[in-house]
Each structure stands twice: as C-alpha cells, then as structure tokens.
Design a protein around this nucleic acid. Sequence first.
DNA 1: TTTTGTGCAAAAGGTTTGCATACGA
DNA 2: TCGTATGCAAACCTTTTGCACAAAA
Lengths: 141, 141
Amino acid sequence: MSPDRSEILEAFKHSGLRCTSQRYAIFDYLVRHPVHPSAEQVYAAVNRKDPRASLATVYKALHALAEAGLIRELTLDGNAIRFEAATTRHHHFICRACGRVEDVDWFELPQFSRQVSIGARKLEGYDLVLHGLCESCSSAT
Amino acid sequence: MSPDRSEILEAFKHSGLRCTSQRYAIFDYLVRHPVHPSAEQVYAAVNRKDPRASLATVYKALHALAEAGLIRELTLDGNAIRFEAATTRHHHFICRACGRVEDVDWFELPQFSRQVSIGARKLEGYDLVLHGLCESCSSAT
DNA sequence: TTTTGTGCAAAAGGTTTGCATACGA
DNA sequence: TCGTATGCAAACCTTTTGCACAAAA
C-alpha cells in the first residue's frame, strides 16, 4: 500500500524535486496518514520526531509537492487548506458537526461527456464535496 | 428575474431577519450581481453608494443572510470565501488562470440514490466545482 | 422601549515573504 | 562548489471580536 523509502525517493527524482529530509518527512507523513491534515497539523506531526521543519518550510514544501503532483490541496471549507497524498482518485465528505473529512469511493460524473454542459470552456478536472453528518456525529444525536 | 423591493422585504420578514439598510443593500447587490464576490468586493460595491456599511458589518450581514438561507457561501479556492444569492441550484466553474467563477447548469448526480456510496453517513448536500480555463483564457493562449 | 445591528479598532488565524545560513546534488 | 531549501521574523490578508452607540420593531 504505502510506498517504501526507495519508491518515495524515486517519486521525488521523477518530479525533479530535490529531496530534503524535511520534504521527505512531510510527504512520508501524508502518505501514511490519510487524514487530510492542514498545514498546521502537518507541522505538528512532523515536529514530533526528527527531522523537524519550521512552519514556513512546511508551507513551502507543501506547495512544491503539490506543484509536482505528489500531493493535492483541498479547499473544503472556509478554514485552512487541507492536504493529501495524490493516491487514487476519490471524492470527499466533510462532516458539518466535527469537521472530519472522509474519502468517498470514486465515480465518474457521466454528464461530463456532454460538452454542452460546459460550453466553450476547457475543463481540466473537478472536485465533488459532499456535506452532512459523519457516522458518529449522526448517531450522537 | 430579480426580486423587487417588496419581495426582498418579504424574504427578510419570512426569515425572521431584521431588515436594516445595510443588509438590504448587501442582499440587493448580490441579487443583481451574480459575480460570486468576496466579502471585500461586496464591501467595495456597497460603499460606492448609500447606505454604506463597514467591513465588519458586511461580514456580519453576510453570515446572517447565509444562516437565513438567503445567500450561499462558496469555498472554491484557498482565497477568500465568495457569496451568491440563493437562487436556483447550479454548479460552479472556476478558471485557474483568471479566477473568474461561472455558473454551470444544474444536474443531479445519479449515484446518490445508492446509499452504498456514502455508507452510514447522513448526506445533506454536495458541491461540485469544475476547474479549467474559461472561454477567454482558453482562447488567449 | 427593548432588542438587535452597526462601526470602530484591535486581535486572531492562516499564509507568504525576504534574507542570511545550511544543505543536497 | 553551485544552486536551492531552510529557518526566522516580520508582513499580509481575510475574518472575527468587544464594546459603545444607533436604529429597527
């Protein structure tokens, strides 16, 4: 499931990204923890062990990784941007009570074959965000 | 198309919202300008004529209107929250080059009848955000 | 008159930036 | 060694908050 060290190094090299210990730690954390953390949460997690990374470095590294396509940025609510390793595609569900983000199995939106629905624009992708109550918040009524 | 003054007043009353001149001006602006403005843009627009509203009031009014269901908040990117009058449902397209937001005709996501795709969660709604290049950015290559 | 909204200014997040230093290739 | 990443601190931008005053019902 999770890539091992050499696979991660390969991914960095393939992206033309210089592999620093901070970037490695940040990417490794995201790969092993699919919890859609904010930058602040990545910062806290990485600093629980070495190598440490300053908050500014975390932001810069996250941008570099996103630009290289190794991770994705998620803007699911008005709060902080969240991040996830760029694994298989999926949709996202966000709980309005606890804020938890969960992955939802991927499915295509069939209407996208009809270009008519998007006119002369050039469509590159889409994000589907589901809202509601997660299982535990739903039963905790 | 756009509601007239008495309809707006009716909407406020129906929502149990006290109708102040600032809130009226803000809502009226959103109804007549479907450009998905940020709070700052609403502030600038409202202050081009009377009655004026401070930025803090704009934020408070926008929240009140959103809570009442008269407007919707859109979190389409990592920048500012955008707002729109709660008219007919539609999806949103955001141009990665110029940031312009456009409405896309509504269509249902058929998979939602299968509860299996969202498990035991309680689904309340969803937002679909399309990414790409708008018509003018697309042709300006 | 009572209740709620407004405006101001200050503060609180989240994120970015500039620059000297440290590190990877 | 050379070029790029890091760390720090300060700045920036968006949004929220507290409180005295003003306006709506």
